[in-house]
């Protein structure tokens, strides 16, 4: 029956091409939205994702929110097998013209957690900082002087890092010495593995829980995820309907084939084979399309092609189209061979 399926598809090219296109576009849309969800997630919280930290120790009742959790310098000194971490969303002003830039200040007691430098040198003293390279869009260069208005302090940019943002703002990494000097408190203790017991009051949270509470993160992700789940549900119905129409159109033909001795099983197999070929081709092409799409996208569009995510959504769509086709095979089982007689009495 394999050759029968293929011959039917090549003979009715247009019909199968149309269904293939629908599958392709639905899959491409799913992949693009998932790529955007990924891209936005990265753009939003890349600093946290890059951070080689597994758990955060937050003050009690902070509900996993870093901005609600505070530890004084004295409390932070009591950390066991964990290091102090600070994060503050503050405006920065650029040098002479005083242009305001939304940014996030971060500090790491543990130097191993500092981001990888892609340009410039490690800060030599407390007045030098590492900044995310998206700062370059605001005209910030190596050696630029940034003014921190909230603490009335000037710092010099000594190095750039990349993929280091927090709530869509570039991160400025400040040394703990300056952090403490300007009177900021720490927000959390971070652990690179496990949840060592602490003497100060607080609770351990996982990184995922903390990331989800970054301002705007959950809202973005949940709206995109809602779109994705709706798309998948729409796909179930659209594909189900298409395959159903395709099979009821052929009920007469199934009847004839049954009359000359074909069994329902082999007819179902032939139909499923067609759906299998259609889905695999369309979904693979859609994945390729999503893969090359960033080349044509405007600069700065947050889109990340994550093979594992694409694979799982691709598998979901594949399952959806097989299920849709399977439902329509009921009409194959029901096809009566007596239809071949040209009259049903």
């Amino acid at each position: 029956m394999f050759s029968l399926s293929i011959k039917e598809m090549t003979f009715f090219k247009l019909k199968y091409l149309l269904i293939g296109f629908i599958l392709f576009f639905v899959a491409a849309l799913v992949f693009i939205i998932s790529g955007l969800a990924n891209g936005l997630a990265n753009d939003n919280a890349s600093s946290m994702k890059e951070l080689e930290v597994t758990n955060f120790y937050l003050a009690e009742d902070s509900e996993n929110r870093l901005d609600r959790s505070q530890f004084t310098i004295e409390q932070a000194e009591k950390a066991k097998d964990a290091s102090a971490f600070g994060v503050q969303m503050q405006t920065t002003e650029k040098g002479k013209d005083g242009k305001k830039i939304d940014s996030t200040f971060m500090t790491f007691e543990n130097e191993k957690l500092l981001p990888t430098i892609i340009e410039g040198k490690m800060p030599q003293n407390a007045n030098e900082v590492i900044v995310d390279k998206t700062m370059q869009e605001h005209g910030v260069k190596l050696g630029s002087v940034l003014y921190l208005p909230s603490v009335e302090k000037k710092v010099k940019v000594s190095a750039f890092t990349e993929h280091f943002t927090y709530s869509h703002t570039p991160v400025i990494v400040i040394q703990p010495a300056l952090w403490e000097k300007v009177g900021f408190t720490y927000n959390a203790l971070v652990s690179t593995s496990g949840t060592p017991a602490q003497s100060i009051d607080g609770d351990w949270s996982t990184k995922e829980d903390v990331v989800a509470q970054i301002p705007g993160y959950s809202a973005e992700q949940s709206s995109l995820n809602m779109m994705l789940s709706f798309l998948i549900i729409i796909a179930v119905f659209v594909l189900g309907a298409f395959f159903y129409i395709m099979t009821i159109q052929k009920v007469q033909q199934f009847g004839i084939l049954k009359a000359i001795g074909a069994k329902s099983k082999s007819l179902i197999r032939a139909t499923m084979l067609q759906v299998f070929i259609l889905s695999i081709t369309s979904i693979t092409l859609a994945a390729l399309f999503a893969y090359i799409l960033p080349l044509f996208m405007p600069e700065g569009m947050p889109f990340v092609f994550e093979p594992t995510v694409i694979l799982s959504y691709g598998a979901a769509l594949f399952a959806v189209s097989l299920i849709g086709a399977l439902i329509s095979t009921i009409s194959i089982v029901k096809a009566d061979p007596i239809q071949a007689m040209g009259r049903v009495e």
């Binding site: 011959k7 039917e8 003979f11 033909q253 004839i256 009359a259 071949a340 040209g342």
Partner: peptide
């Protein structure tokens, strides 16, 4: 059969 009932695409 009355209508030859061949498979249309073969």
């Amino acid at each position: 059969f009355q209508a030859s009932n061949l498979v249309p695409f073969l």
